[in-house]
Amino acid sequence: MPHFTMEYSANLDASVDLAGLCQAVHGTILSTGLFELGAVRVRAIRCEAYAVADLLPENGFIDMSFRIGKGRSAEEKRQAGEAIFATVTQFLAPLFATPHFALTLEIREIDAELSWKKNAIHPRLRQG
């Protein structure tokens, strides 16, 4: 279980390779060494309706949420967050050249007592 979700303003469709961004984040998550391959999920969710700052139509955003299970130190979580944020910031460098883009990331720990999972991918990947 790490689930990484990006909610993004629909006006970014023409300027951001979201599939490429998802793959870049996926690779960064794995490179931390903190998460098992079969557990990683990265997705982008398009927001059709949004209102950003002073409501200029050029304003856009990506709000990132990284939900992880307990068991990592504060330092490990900080390092993972910094690595992910650096990857995304570099990927989106052209957007930061404009005064119309906002990026956020929050890491949340999941309460294991209130989380149910069933994963048929783990056994296949663990065989190799």
Rank of each mutant, 00 (worst) to 15 (best):
E48M: 03
A97T: 14
G33Q: 04
E75Y: 03
L18T: 02
H122T: 14
M6W: 00
Q79A: 15
G20N: 09
G60D: 01
N119M: 07
A112N: 10
K70L: 14
L37H: 11
A97Q: 15
R78K: 15
G128A: 10
A102H: 11
L95R: 14
E48G: 11
E58F: 01
G38N: 10
M6H: 00
G60N: 02
P123G: 07
A80H: 09
D111I: 10
G71Y: 03
E106A: 15
D17M: 08
I68C: 12
L55C: 09
D54F: 13
A19N: 11
F91I: 05
S15C: 08
S9D: 00
S115P: 00
T32G: 12
T87K: 02
T87Q: 13
I62V: 13
P57F: 02
K118Y: 09
V42W: 04
D17Q: 06
G27K: 12
L105R: 03
S73D: 02
D54Y: 12
R46M: 00
A83N: 14
T32H: 09
A112Q: 13
I121Y: 04
S73F: 09
F101D: 01
E106R: 08
P123N: 07
T89N: 10
T104C: 05
N119G: 03
F4S: 13
R67Y: 11
A80V: 09
L92C: 02
T104K: 05
L34Y: 12
K118D: 03
C22R: 06
H100V: 01
T89D: 13
F96R: 13
T5D: 03
A39Y: 10
E36Q: 12
A97N: 14
S115E: 12
K77M: 13
H3A: 12
V52A: 07
I29D: 09
M6A: 05
R41Y: 03
G38M: 06
